[in-house]
């Protein structure tokens, strides 16, 4: 799943470590979410949304391959 976490973090001038501390997770987790290698759990997704003041849907986007499939079907 794609997300805009890196952009939002950069806007606030936070490092990955600082964001990790605010979320009470490891820096490895933050990096894995940003690179799309790991999708956060629902509680963590809600934490992220609350922290950045956005909805989960605004922050996380379905993969482009899935979007293409959906466009083909409609």
């Amino acid at each position: 799943m794609n997300n805009s976490l890196r952009v939002l973090r950069a806007e606030r001038g936070w490092s990955q470590a600082e964001l990790a501390t605010r979320l009470k997770v490891s820096r490895q987790t933050v990096n894995a979410i940003e690179t799309g290698k790991y999708d956060p759990s629902l509680p963590l997704a809600f934490k992220l949304a609350r922290l950045f003041g956005h909805s989960i849907e605004e922050m996380f986007h379905e993969d482009s391959a899935l979007q293409k499939t959906q466009v083909r079907l409609t």
Partner: peptide, 12 residues
């Protein structure tokens, strides 16, 4: 204790 204190990705 390590597991209990670990975050979700480390646990996975």
């Amino acid at each position: 204790r390590f597991l209990r204190d670990a975050d979700e990705l480390v646990r996975r």
